[in-house]
Amino acid sequence: MSAQSYDEGDLRAAAAAAIRAPSLHNSQPWRFRLHDGAIEVLADRSRQLAVADSTGWAVNIACGAATFNARLALTNAGTPADLTLLPRDTGPDVIARLTPGSPRPATYPEQALFAAIPHRHSNRKPFFPDPVPSPVRAQLIEAARAELAWLDLLVGMTALTGFAEIAQSADRVLRRNPQYQTEMAGWTHADQAPDGVPVTAGAPATEPQDLLPQRAFTDRRRAPGRDFEPEPLVAILGSAGDRPTDQITAGQALQRVLLTVTDAGLAASMLSQPIEVPTARDQLRRSLHRSGIPQMALRIGYGQPGRPTPRRDLADVLAEQG
C-alpha cells in the first residue's frame, strides 16, 4: 500500500540531500516545498546566471541533479517517489514533483549512492595518470542509461585532441566576454561563503601545455611536477533532445554518474564551456556522430582528496507550503 503523503520530516531530509547537488558557479538555483503531500523542486530564478545561463539550461541541469538526490533520500527513508517533471497544474518554476510511491527498502546500490552524496565534489586539480578501470567505465555508462541519458567516453588521443580543440575554442569565446567574466568573478569568493566557488577550490592557473581549459577561479600556480594528466578520461553526457524536460533528465543522469564516480573512489570535474557556447556545442555533437544533444562534459580520474564547497542553510531553500 502506498503512503498517502510526505511530511515535513521527509521534506527536510530530501532537501538536505538535494542541496549537495552541483550547479554552475555553485549558484544553487533551487527551492523545495511541501504541496498537497508531495515534495516539489522549484527553480529559484533569482539565482539564474544572467550571462552564463540566459536560456535556463544550467538551472534545469542543477535542479535535475538536486531532484535525483532528493529521490535517493526518500528511497533510503523507505518511501521511493513517483516522479513528475514540469507538472502542468503548477507554476512555471516547479521543476519536479515527488509523490509517495510504494514503500520498500533501498537496494544496496541505492544505499551506496546515497552514502556518496556528502562526499561528492568537483575536483579541478590535476589527477594522477592511473587509468580508470574498464568495469568502472561500464558502470558510468550504465548510470547515465539508467536515467534515460547517454554517456560517451572519448577513447584515444585523436578523439581527445578533437574535444580539447572545441573546449579551448569555447573557453576563449567566454574569456573574451567581459560581462561573463564579471559575473563569474561575482561568484568567486576568498572566504567560506555559503554559495559560489571558493578560490581554494579552483584549478591552478592555466599553462600553455594544458590540454583542457580550466576556469580562472584563482591565479594560484601549480606545484612543480603537478601538470594535468596527459591523457584524461573525458566523458560527454547527453540527452535525446534539448527541451527543458531533456535538460532536467540530463541533470538527474549527471548526478547519478557523479555519485557513481564518488562511490568508485574517483574524482571528477565538469567542463561546461563547450556546452555554453552554441557553435561549440553543435560542433561537439557532430564530432560524436550522435543525433542527441550534449549536456555536460566531464573529466574523470584519480585525484587528491578534497572537500565539498559550502551550501546555504536548509532554512534558506525551503519555500512556504503550497
Rank of each mutant, 00 (worst) to 15 (best):
S2T: 11
A3E: 05
S5Q: 15
Y6M: 00
A13W: 04
A15R: 07
A17H: 04
A21G: 09
S27G: 13
Q28I: 09
P29F: 08
P29D: 12
W30M: 09
H35D: 14
A43L: 02
R47H: 03
D53K: 00
A62F: 12
G64P: 04
G64R: 07
A65P: 12
A66Y: 08
N69Y: 09
R71E: 13
A73K: 04
A77P: 12
T79G: 11
P80E: 09
P87H: 10
D89F: 05
D89M: 04
G91P: 02
V94H: 00
I95N: 09
A96H: 08
R97L: 04
P103D: 15
R104S: 13
P105S: 14
T107R: 07
Y108Q: 09
Q111G: 11
R120K: 14
R120W: 12
S122G: 13
R124T: 03
P129A: 07
D130V: 10
D130I: 11
P131W: 09
P131S: 09
P133C: 10
V136H: 14
L140F: 15
A144Y: 02
E147G: 06
L148P: 02
L151C: 14
D152K: 14
G156K: 06
T158L: 08
G162W: 00
A164K: 04
E165T: 10
E165P: 00
L174E: 01
R175E: 05
P178S: 06
Q179S: 15
Y180N: 07
E183T: 07
M184L: 14
G186C: 00
H189L: 03
H189P: 00
Q192G: 02
D195C: 02
V199F: 00
V199L: 01
T200E: 11
A201W: 00
A201Y: 00
A201M: 03
A203R: 00
P208A: 13
L211I: 12
L211F: 09
Q214L: 08
T218Q: 11
T218R: 12
R226G: 10
D227N: 14
D227K: 09
P232F: 04
L233M: 15
G238A: 13
S239P: 03
S239C: 08
D242P: 04
D242G: 14
I248C: 05
I248V: 14
A264H: 11
L266S: 06
A267E: 12
A268S: 15
S272E: 03
Q273D: 05
E276Q: 04
P278C: 05
T279N: 13
R281N: 03
Q283I: 03
L288F: 10
R290Y: 00
S291R: 06
G292A: 03
P294C: 08
A297F: 02
R299L: 10
I300G: 01
G303P: 02
P305W: 07
G306T: 15
G306C: 12
R307M: 01
R307A: 08
R307H: 07
T309S: 15
L314V: 13
V317D: 00
E320F: 09
Q321T: 15
